[in-house]
Design a protein around this nucleic acid. Structure first.
Length: 919
RNA sequence: GCGGGUGUGUUGGAAUUGGUAGACAACCCAGACUUAGGAUCUGGUGCCUUACGGCGUAUGGGUUCGAGUCCCUUCACCCGCACCA
């Protein structure tokens, strides 16, 4: 019987499904291990070979952990709400649910062919009402909570209302939006609406006005991580800054904890660094500048990390979107300022970033430097951001390059504050040097001056120490149809939660999926989008809502009473190994951590961090092939000869190219206009050119895993994807080389079968055979723990070479078990052929015996002053002194060297001998 | 500009963490078996040299008995962030 992978793979996939081989249950006898993949968004294009890379890696680990005696949770599902299905729906009128359903079916079919050990009983989609009920529930919990900065945790909003009753807004130290302070008396006198408005500023899920990314082409707002270089990540449409009232999540309240939590996580340094940058902690000070505008005094607070440079302030700058702009624009300047604001408003985010042009306008008002009493002009300029700090800065052109550029452009004075600083050409931004022109700070180094200045400012009541974070609250509403509806209705204008018993609040049917003519979200088209007679919220939640707590739901996916039961949560706790791409570094991975920490604060989950270890699989790029067309003809030149002709490269489908050789017949059949193509061949063959590009349809370089499964089998695909190189590295897909791993499987098969004959014997293995086996077990165990699967596979090939055609059960049985995580189908077949009843999944990983793997002799390279002269065979057990004696007496140790000329002999046991000669 | 990373044969990549560089594969070459081969098996394959031998891990230097690995210089490429005050 030959290795018939098609038959074997089909057979065992069915068997696994029928027997529910991979079902996980709460089983407290065994230690748990939770392996999770970032679940896919099922796009219409289906899977290409790049997608399963991470799934294969995690599947190998899950299978390995099972063999090691762990109770493994390894689920899969779909992130099913999202823009592409909605865009498709707008174009075709097809319900996104239908598209999603079809795409999921296709994905499932493709995934099933690869032989993953997912527990499919736990599958769900984020668009299932039974699932999004818990997304809505979590939102309501956030709506009903505030963040206590003293206790550093979220608490129920009722406690806050009680505190206001007692002592007004001063009674708590809470994370909140800007707004007026109030006393207990004022609170009590508030109307219902005023109370609601006040509380809204404290809620963790709140409605508030802020500058948002508005994407007119998509008709929706976007979160910061959904905008790349001023364009929407999905679709690539321009994005504008706009002030709007939106639902938001107070992620910023958790900034400190999100940052500190990183220390305890086993993630790559680069990913942690990305999150650190995104959270963007900076220590500095807030300072109050008095500003006079048309005779009226205002206190304007600014944030700075360079309190030491306050003596060099020569002007102040407001962000165009800052609330101060209106109050600080003088009557005389109003026309000019308005013109400027209008001009800024028209620019896209992209233009603001790209256009490095220095722009600004004088507001007409003047501020007073609180330390020097000097009067400085207040400007408005787009280089200051409304969303960071206070939206107002003190400008120190001598020591900040942006302020410097601005001062140069508008002819503002520049005062150097550091001894010897030459600021005639550029500013000196570095935090080093000795202070001058700075009153009481003179003579201090910059590093001393910063705290000294802050101390001074605090003592004189001009300002205070302040830690600022760059991370903003997440904009949580989207003006779209295909997302979770907000369980919020408006009772007399007050946002009120839908009762828990009425969740899930399901999406209404509508006839068209685009926004209404007057710019309302699609849900405005629903016939009766009300609750208890009051209007419901019309926007829906963003994509990340559904993916923020899905890993918790897998622990207990069918629970109708809770997101996850206490029992399941306390058993599975959190994800031990999470595998996915880096593209989620500042999106999903931040939101999930935030969401989890929030649920942790409220006592719904027992771990404060969701993902212990995280591996980022590298992207698989495409390897495109080209043919070279002579323009104006139908003649193609082989790559080696193309320089002799005028040619243009044309992408050719990689599926009709083998090892860069074009299948000419297939090419002629590929497209009608190539039917009569002619070729200039080299050595009778047409050789294609190639390039590494993104894997995409338009480049004809998409390799479908189904095709690989058809021609080589799923086991070969799995093995090959892992053999390609380290998991975390980006690498091009190149089918060349897949024969190597395929040959390996065939060879492995032939150890058991010779055409019709079963070869396995019960003979005792020899020492050499045991050595080869145990070397492999040791190496495999080590490498798998470190996710170095490519070297594990190499070790397998070596073992096979060393074993020759050994067909002894005592060797083949453990070998099969070790292979099973990588190539589960062939392993399962052979495991049963060896006479085992249950699945190989329930086998135990063979015990590594070092003594069996060890060599009993060692071949020492002997070097003289670092140059290897000969090899010395010595017993492995020999002490360094014995080895040294052997070297000194060895016939190949040159006569002239002798004992007199040897300075010392260095013996590294089992490694090397170096004889150091006297100079 | 700031931060992180990488540089090894024709190619993908190994190297027990400072100890025989190029494992294991792909490609290519030769041979065997074959009607045939995108099947199987055997051998060869870093570079220079007929050989002896020499040279080789982006570059130049350093530490060491010994460096792909550690330190410094330069160069190249990749990724992330970027008016964050």
């Amino acid at each position: 019987m030959d290795y018939n992978f098609l038959e074997i793979e089909k057979k065992w996939q069915q068997w696994w499904a029928q027997n529910k081989t991979y079902r996980a249950s709460v089983d407290s006898d065994k230690p748990k291990y939770y392996v999770l993949d970032m679940f896919p968004y099922p796009s219409g294009a289906g899977l290409h070979v790049g997608h399963p890379l991470g799934y294969i890696a995690s599947d190998i680990f899950a299978r390995y952990k099972r063999l090691k005696g762990f109770n493994v949770l390894h689920p899969m599902g779909y992130d099913a709400f999202g823009l592409p299905a909605e865009q498709y729906a707008i174009q075709t009128g097809q319900h996104p649910e239908k598209t999603t359903h079809d795409n999921v079916a296709r994905y499932r079919q493709q995934l099933d062919r690869i032989g993953f050990s997912f527990d499919w009983d736990r599958e769900f989609r984020t668009c299932d009402p039974e699932y999004y009920k818990w997304t809505q529930w979590a939102f309501l919990k956030m709506f009903g909570s505030w963040y206590d900065k003293d206790a550093e945790k979220a608490r129920p909003i009722e406690e806050l209302a009680a505190a206001f009753e007692q002592g007004g807004s001063a009674a708590v130290n809470a994370a909140c939006s800007e707004g007026p302070a109030f006393t207990a008396g004022e609170w009590k006198a508030f109307s219902e609406k005023e109370k609601a408005d006040a509380l809204m500023r404290y809620r963790l899920a709140y409605q508030g006005e802020s500058t948002v990314n508005w994407c007119p082409a998509l008709g929706t707002v976007l979160a910061n991580d959904e905008v790349k270089d001023g364009f929407s990540e999905r679709g690539g449409f321009p994005v504008f800054q706009k002030k709007m009232t939106q639902w938001q999540l107070r992620v910023s309240a958790y900034a400190g904890r999100l940052l500190d939590g990183l220390e305890r996580l086993d993630w790559t340094e680069s990913l942690k660094e990305m999150q650190r940058n995104w959270i963007g902690r900076s220590e500095g000070a807030e300072m109050v500048f008095q500003v006079e505008c048309d005779g009226v005094q205002h206190d304007v607070t600014i944030f700075t990390t360079r309190a030491d440079t306050v003596f060099g302030v020569t002007f102040m700058v407001l962000a165009p979107e800052s609330e101060w702009v209106e109050k600080l624009t003088s009557k005389a300047q109003k026309a000019e300022v308005d013109a400027y604001l209008e001009q800024v408003k028209k620019k896209t985010e992209r233009e603001r970033i790209a256009g490095k042009a220095v722009t600004g306008v004088f507001s007409g008002s003047y501020g007073i430097n609180p330390l020097t009493g000097q009067k400085v002009p207040v400007w408005i300029a787009e280089y200051v951001l409304a969303g960071y700090g206070t939206g107002a800065i003190m400008a120190v052109p001598a020591h900040d390059s942006r302020d410097y550029a601005f001062a140069k452009k508008f002819n503002l004075p520049i005062i150097p504050l550091i001894e010897g600083a030459d600021v005639s050409e550029q500013s000196l931004d570095a935090k080093e040097g000795i202070m001058c022109n700075s009153g009481f700070l003179n003579g201090l180094t910059v590093k001393q001056a910063i705290p000294a200045a802050i101390d001074y400012v605090e003592k004189h009541g001009i300002g205070r120490r302040k830690v600022n974070y760059r991370i903003r609250d997440a904009i949580f509403s989207r003006q779209r149809y295909w997302g979770e509806p907000f369980p919020i209705y408006y009772k007399d204008g007050i946002a009120t939660p839908v009762a828990f018993e009425d969740l899930p609040l399901t999406l209404p049917e509508i006839d068209q999926y685009k926004p209404t003519e007057d710019g309302q979200p699609p849900l405005a088209r629903a016939k009766d989008w009300t609750y208890k007679g009051y209007p419901l919220e019309k926007s829906t939640m963003p994509g990340f809502a559904g993916s923020s707590a899905y890993y918790l739901r897998y622990m207990d996916p069918h629970n109708g009473e809770a997101l996850v039961s206490k029992e399941a949560d306390e058993y599975w706790r959190n994800v031990d190994l999470y595998v996915g791409g880096t593209e989620h570094a500042t999106g999903h991975l931040i939101y999930s951590r935030f969401w989890n920490k929030f649920l942790f604060d409220l006592g719904y989950v027992c771990e404060d961090e969701p993902f212990c270890k995280l591996i980022n699989q590298g992207m698989i790029q495409g390897r495109s092939n080209f043919v070279y067309l002579i323009p104006g003809t139908n003649k193609f030149v082989s790559a080696g000869l193309k320089d002799q002709y005028e040619t243009i490269p044309v992408h050719v489908d990689v599926n009709i190219v083998y090892n860069d050789k074009l299948d000419i017949e297939a090419f002629r059949a590929w497209r009608p206009d190539y039917k009569d193509a002619e070729f200039v061949l080299e050595d009778g063959e047409y050789i294609c050119g190639w390039a590494i590009e993104k894997m995409s349809k338009s480049m004809y370089n998409v390799v479908n895993p189904d095709k690989i499964c058809d021609t080589y089998g799923a086991d070969t695909l799995r093995l090959y994807e892992m053999f390609l190189g380290p998991i975390e590295q980006a690498k091009p897909w190149d089918t060349k080389g897949i024969d190597g791993v395929n040959r390996f499987l065939k060879k492995f098969w032939r150890l058991f079968w010779d055409r019709e004959k079963w070869l396995v014997t019960d003979e005792e293995p020899t020492k050499e055979e045991l050595k080869a086996l145990h070397k492999l077990i040791g190496k495999a165990q080590d490498d798998i723990e470190h996710f170095s699967y490519n070297t594990t596979i190499s070790a397998f090939m070596i073992a096979l070479n060393e074993l020759g055609n050994c067909s002894k059960r005592a060797i083949l049985e453990p070998l099969t078990v070790v292979l099973s995580p990588f190539a589960p189908h062939i392993a399962e077949e052979l495991w049963h052929q060896l006479g085992n009843e249950g699945s190989v999944v329930y086998a135990t990983f063979p015990e590594y015996k070092e003594e069996l793997a060890a060599d009993n002799t060692v071949n020492y390279p002997v070097s003289f002053n670092g140059k290897t002269r000969f090899f010395l065979e010595a017993p492995a057990s020999a002490a360094p002194a014995d080895v040294e004696a052997l070297v000194r007496s060895h016939e190949k140790t040159p006569q002239y060297v002798g004992d007199m000329n040897i300075a010392k002999v260095i013996v590294v046991p089992g490694r090397i001998v170096n004889v150091v000669l006297k100079k």
